[in-house]
């Protein structure tokens, strides 16, 4: 299982408990989270499904590079962190 953890800053707006989900790419992992927390989707992704400009995602310590298609690979035991970027603040 992949553990997905969200910046505590999001808690000001909605509930975002850490989630354990399956998925082989960032897209699959996030879709699995949104399946159990749909309101979260628009906080993380823009209208076209890309990562929001000022949101960063880290997979096992590495910041994801494909912010549009979210195709970066995720290993089965990875930790994924969804963070608020310093930019945009």
């Amino acid at each position: 299982m992949v553990r997905v953890t969200f910046t505590a800053n999001l808690e000001r707006h909605l509930s975002v408990p850490a989630a354990d989900v399956e998925g082989a790419t960032v897209r699959e992992v996030l879709d699995a989270v949104f399946a159990i927390n749909e309101p979260l989707r628009s906080y993380v992704l823009d209208d076209q499904g890309a990562l929001r400009k000022h949101v960063n995602v880290f997979v096992s310590g590495t910041q994801v590079r494909d912010r549009g298609d979210l195709s970066d690979a995720v290993r089965g035991d990875a930790d994924v962190y969804v963070m608020q970027a310093l930019s945009g603040g």
């Binding site: 800053n9 628009s42 906080y43 949101v55 970027a85 603040g89």
Partner: peptide, 20 residues
């Protein structure tokens, strides 16, 4: 919201409480 995009909030009680 600078990081998390645009949202709409609605209040049915004159601003006492809001729902996204």
């Amino acid at each position: 919201l600078g990081h998390y995009g645009t949202k709409f909030q609605r209040s049915d009680d004159g601003g006492g409480s809001f729902t996204e």
